[in-house]
Amino acid sequence: MNRFVAGTIILILCYLSVCNLSAASPEIEKARQYGARGQVTLRITDSTGKPVENALMSVAFFPSDSYADTDVRAGQTDTNGCFCIEGKTVGDLTFSITKSNHYATTGKYWFYRKEENCLLNNRWQPWNPTNTVVLKEHRNPLPMYAKNVDAFIPTQDTPSGFDLEFGDWVAPYGKGKKADLLIIYHAKIEDILNFSNQLVIACNNKLDGLQRARKEIESSLLSTYEAPIDGYQQQMVLTINRTKHTIIMHEEIGDKEYLIFRTRTVLDEKGNIVSAQYGKIYGPIEYGRADENHSAIRFTYYFNPTANDRNLEFDPSRNLFGQTDKQRVYQP
């Protein structure tokens, strides 16, 4: 190795050692700070893979991290559902897609990828990749019983039944008739950072159950279209158990998750499901002390009134509970 090369290497190493940034190449770090050109083709399909033509696209490039420099473009997808866009960015772009009879979708595309060779001649690489984005279509949005529940839990340490069709606790605590969910709340609170809260959500009948899923947060239809046939568990236990300095256990249904439930299951003599009803509960499911004498729970659920119909797609304009300002469920 000649002295020039060795010296260059040393300089580079020194530069890296004093550089404010990571061990990525200087060009990449410069591009991350001052932007580089990038081009991507966003190919929009519906949930079946069919291209979506004439979808309205709004795309934002970030020539710097300054919001004032944000470069927003608009356009429509072509007959192949494609929208090709180029701009200068420090590493990502964001987009939103809308079209009638489809659920709006937002997303982000990363040009910059850590520890990858993602820049060439001040252009993000690969150049003009095709990135497929799903724009969910309206399939069959249904009227459902949808409610934002924000209620006291009637008892502590013993099950309280909740009727999803009625939207209320079952007697003697409310006017509900069938306990679709059994809610059991346990709490031991020493002080504000030393406590143990536990919420058990259980189902009543054999083969009733719950299953956890991740929200498809890019889409305004956060859930899947249809409840699965299998995979339900009889109960789910949510826990916050902590001290001031330690989280002993934290199991939650957070804002990126939801539950799918099956309830009112009727079996034949062979144990096959004859009838069942389905629905979903969007996270976060929140619970805890409401005041000195009460605990409370907060969740949003959707109950399909039709037996054996696994459709989870809700039409917000046809809430079977009606609509009031406070109770309106606007999320499909």
């Binding site: 990571s22 700070q33 991290d65 300054s66 004032a68 420099d69």
Partner: peptide, 9 residues
């Protein structure tokens, strides 16, 4: 990750 330094106007 580690963001880039302030770079805006």
């Amino acid at each position: 990750g580690t963001p880039s330094p302030f770079s805006g106007g």
